[in-house]
Amino acid sequence: MASKSNDRGVEIMAASIDGKACGNYEGLAGTFASFADSCLRHKTLPGFYRTDLTVEAELKGRRLHLVLPGKRTPAELMEILDTALLNIVAFPCTEGKAECFIEVKSEK
């Protein structure tokens, strides 16, 4: 079953770092599924394949919870997330309602 998508065939993902909203990203519908697969099956983020960045991930419906290794500042986490989303061809956007959620935390 393909994921939900609007008429334009895109989906909007809301990103948050340590519980604080930090922007929306637009990708082709299915991008969230790609992103989630990367985190769940490959245990890494797009663009960080076989680097030392191993993520812990849990998917609940359309909500993906991620824990990134190392103690990183929110700004560092944001930079990593922004790069990962670009690497899966999703770009920052200001319009539209988010249907998928990526919640990132740093390792405690």
């Binding site: 697969d37 990367s38 663009g47």
Partner: peptide, 9 residues
């Protein structure tokens, strides 16, 4: 395919 997806080299 997006060119940086994990699994693709």
């Amino acid at each position: 395919v997006q060119n940086s997806v994990p699994g693709l080299s």
